[in-house]
């Protein structure tokens, strides 16, 4: 599945991944392939991506919003450290 992580200042990540764990407002959750469509607001925390080669990539975000739809994920982060 495909994920795009964008902040107002730049595009952080764009590519194919296996899974992503995000800090949802109601608790952290993981998105795998064929996840049901969801829109959730995010809190401060770590976004953990596992890419096609099983490498883990971590981003510290401060709030944001995620939309998952038909194996396409859009993550709008306020800022990324």
């Amino acid at each position: 599945m495909k994920i795009e992580i964008v902040t107002p200042d730049k595009k952080i990540f764009d590519g194919e991944i296996k899974s992503v764990r995000v800090p949802g407002k109601k608790g952290s959750f993981q998105v795998l392939k064929d996840h049901a469509p969801i829109i959730s607001t995010l809190e401060n925390g770590t976004v953990r991506i596992v890419d096609q080669e099983n490498n883990e990539i971590n981003y510290e975000i401060s709030g944001g919003i995620i939309e998952v739809k038909a194996n396409k994920i859009i993550l709008l982060a306020d800022s990324v450290r």
Binding site: K25, P37, I38, I39, S40, I65, K69
Partner: peptide
Amino acid sequence: PTDYIYEPGKEEIIKELIPKSLKI
């Protein structure tokens, strides 16, 4: 319209989105 799961809820999300889009 896609049948989304909303977390924590539609209203809360809209409430967060409006100030965001204002800032943008």
